[in-house]
Amino acid sequence: MSIFLDANTTVEVQGATGKEGAYWLKHMKEMGTMVVFGVTPGKEGQKIEGVPVFSSVRRGMKQHAADLAMLFVPPRFTKDAIFEALDAGITKIVSIAEGVPVHELLQIRRAALSCGAMVIGGNTSGVISPGRALAGCIPYWIERVYRQGDIGVMTRSGSLTNEVTAEIVKGGFGVSTLIGVGGDMVPGTRFAELLPLYENDPETRAVVIIGELGGSMEEEVAEAMQAKIFTKPMVAFIGGRTAPEGRRMGHAGAIVSGGRGSVSGKVAALEKAGALTAAKPSQVGPLLREITAAR
């Protein structure tokens, strides 16, 4: 088992014939992901890596049912591409694009909530269930980083994810499913919304979150733990403990966040909820050993 994505998840790839789309479609297939069709307007009838290409998601869905839409689409076309997948009835969407305007991100998340769909991203490297399937651009072939196991990982970061995940493997563990919720101001899916999935996944024994300065996603995780929505062991790494405060958004930012957003506040909230927090990536492995041995 895993969450969101496994070896039986059927995937359609939007932007399949572009440089990035084609490169990662090949890797997704090589890893064993069930890619059923690709979408590039005007390229219907072509094949890429043996996968048929259609001019629209609906046209592809008439012949192949896809559970998940993987978007390699530039930011200015991303909103339309996500709504196209939603219109075709797809409820799992992963979008990597960085640079989608905030107002469009609001519309995307609101539409996903209304449709009961889950949009992962944007500004992310995607989702991987090591050994089974990949939706995104994650170098699964680097064995010291991506090994199958029983640790769920949620992250807001890219490069830091490779860094921390390597420490999970070094600690003797592997990953059930890693989900990059992305670095946008309005992520399509928030950390706390993934917790019930990890909670119900028998293969996930503990979860590591890789957080950052700003926003309130880490505090929401702490609240979910306090409310017993998530009861498995949790280790958190949050970078920026010594960094100067990030950008401020007038008085409104402070009022909205209600004092949340600082690294020290996040660490305190998570520790109070029972998570162990790492000051350095290299502590993540040992802390995982400690917290999984204790239960």
């Binding site: 970061s157 830091l160 890789i210 010594t242």
Partner: peptide, 17 residues
């Protein structure tokens, strides 16, 4: 000269530690 905001803030921490 680092890659990614998350990794960079982490390196910033590690330098200070």
């Amino acid at each position: 000269m680092c890659g990614g905001a998350g990794l960079t803030t982490t390196v910033y921490d590690l330098v200070h530690y």
